[in-house]
């Protein structure tokens, strides 16, 4: 993939031009060229970083964040057959789920799109995730970070229970925990023992990227 094609792909994504994005990645997928596929992923990740910055600065809105993430997701799906031999994540593994008592997934799913495109392997536990399921996944995947999403205030009480169970199983110290969702505040998040609060999916991705890079 040439620099010009990478730029075309990036611009198409920033124009929310789904057809344009899929045209470029389909052509790349047809070649089965691993190096080209990696460059396409790099262009997509670069574009999503710009999307994230625009969102954080108030230039773009949630609909644009969601739609760009969905386009990126479809593009990655087209590229994944070529990348399947190269599944070693560059950034590490993240486990995420919506806490028990809560079935909302919008913020979590936007985060997954952005974190995946940023190079993380994301284990999605879904919604209404029990304490035991969070702990089991952490023990199994040994992620660099655990993400807990929560939209409903009454469900927020489940977050300290998840963290307490991780403490009791002896895995809390080696794990970073990030929480986010409309029911939560930074104050609450830190009080219950999380390491960080993500006001939005983009900031959440920035935070786990910084953790992964040892910052």
């Amino acid at each position: 993939m040439s620099a010009q094609e990478m730029e075309k792909l990036k611009e198409a994504l920033l124009d929310l031009n789904k057809a344009g994005v899929l045209e470029v990645v389909s052509a790349t997928a047809t070649t089965a060229d691993l190096q080209a596929a990696k460059l396409a992923v790099e262009a997509i990740a670069g574009a999503l970083q710009v999307v994230g910055k625009r969102f954080q600065e108030g230039e773009w809105f949630l609909d644009e964040l969601v739609y760009s993430g969905e386009i990126a997701k479809q593009a990655m799906e087209k590229l994944s057959p070529i990348l399947c031999d190269e599944t070693q994540p560059t950034q590490g593994c993240v486990v995420i789920g919506t806490v028990f008592g809560d079935l909302h997934d919008l913020g979590k799913d936007i985060f997954i799109n952005f974190a995946t495109s940023a190079g993380f392997k994301v284990i999605d536990l879904g919604v209404n995730v029990s304490v035991e399921a969070f702990t089991k996944a952490v023990l199994e995947h040994q992620p660099v970070a655990l993400g807990i999403s929560c939209l409903l205030t009454p469900a927020a009480g489940g977050i300290p229970q998840v963290i307490q169970d991780l403490v009791e199983k002896g895995v809390r110290e080696s794990l970073k925990i990030i929480v986010g969702g409309a029911a939560l505040t930074e104050k609450f998040s830190l009080e219950v023992g999380a390491d960080a609060f993500a006001p939005d999916a983009v900031t959440g991705t920035d935070i786990i990227r910084a953790w992964s890079e040892g910052q």
Partner: peptide
């Protein structure tokens, strides 16, 4: 709106 701003671009 959501916590940090509009759910959709206001012009939309």
């Amino acid at each position: 709106g959501q916590k940090t701003g509009p759910l959709m671009r206001p012009a939309l």
